[in-house]
Design a protein around this nucleic acid. Structure first.
Lengths: 186, 186
DNA sequence: CTTCAATCGGAATCGGAGTCCGTTTCCACT
DNA sequence: AGTGGAAACGGACTCCGATTCCGATTGAAG
């Protein structure tokens, strides 16, 4: 089940991810594969043996961010006030700092079926579910708020950031709506 | 200032826009230029003489929608209840029906400086400003709501729709926040 | 019915992702 | 320590679209 990979193969893979990380974070999606390969000191062929396509690389490069987010979520989003709100603001912060992360998130919504590539991602998902549950139990969000809603808004947030709009304003406009719907009484 | 264009040139331009309209509306962004040219019964070169690049064509093809939206806005968004809310729902409806329109809107936010191509677009902008003013005067939206906020949300809406998410839900979550911020008091 | 500038059409060029294959490098086994 | 060959390498090459170029057409002014 686990033919240990060759030493240099592993090393190269790491180099590629590392190079991709920096380039994507800095310039977002518009970086060419040959450029990444060069920066990593390998040939394009090598990049493609490790990652089926460009998108897979984008996601792999962002993977560490998901772990980072999860870490933050676990330690800061289960207090007195709304964990979701903190979560959104933190993600907004990261997204606006790392243009590669937005690319990765946006990709998780391209064509159908391609759902969850990456492990850190899946584990983050369950934490988000816990936050939603926690906030709901504490009456910090409208009772019909679901995990799907969170993803919906994270996706929107990502697009807002990608286009260089005022994302803080977006959150200021949007987050209050998640709180108990005082004005939506109907 | 106006060397009247040759008759056939104008006819061809119209054919191209027409073909593009149908193809984009149906399949969104993934339609090739040669295909559009063929559908219009002209050569690619002709397409490019009329439109500097693919993007310009996408926008030209969506132009009529902007006129449509403006028409709707003028006649339905100045009543008793929130014009903005009606506006958002109408645009959501159109966007979800015409995949080319989302592409056009998203393009209006790509790289900097490329702001307003297209005339119908500019004229629509002023109507939106009027709606905001009208709603504000009637106390139907939070007093600090600006036109920029509307574009921010329309952009987000477009991205939500493009990714096939539940846009009605997005509006249900978001629009209440535009109303007077009862819960944002502090 | 000329004339010729505006138009046309579509072959050719360009740019960038992804593929192929001859060469090189590990490392399991002697 | 030596060696066979499977795995990994690199980068030239193929593919696919958008965009450009230019010789052949064609509308319309005179």
């Amino acid at each position: 089940m686990s033919t240990k990979p060759r030493a240099d193969a592993e090393r190269n893979r790491a180099r590629v991810v590392e190079a991709a990380r920096e380039l994507f974070a800095e310039r977002g999606d518009d970086v060419q594969m040959p450029e990444i390969a060069r920066a990593a000191g390998v040939g394009v062929g090598t990049v493609y043996r490790h990652f089926p396509d460009r998108q897979a690389l984008v996601e792999a490069a962002a993977e560490h961010r998901f772990a980072e987010i999860e870490e933050y979520a676990r330690t800061h989003c289960f207090g007195e006030d709304s964990g979701l709100e903190r979560y959104f603001r933190y993600v907004g912060e990261l997204l606006s700092r790392d243009r590669g992360l937005t690319a990765a998130i946006d990709s998780a919504r391209g064509r159908p079926g391609s759902e969850p590539r990456g492990t850190a991602r899946g584990s983050l998902e369950s934490v988000v579910a816990e936050i939603v549950a926690h906030d709901r139990a504490a009456g910090l969000v409208r009772p019909d708020c679901t995990v799907a809603d969170v993803y919906l808004l994270i996706g929107a947030l990502s697009s807002v950031i990608r286009t260089g709009s005022d994302w803080a304003r977006f959150l200021d406009l949007t987050l209050p709506a998640l709180r108990d719907q005082l004005s939506t009484e109907h």
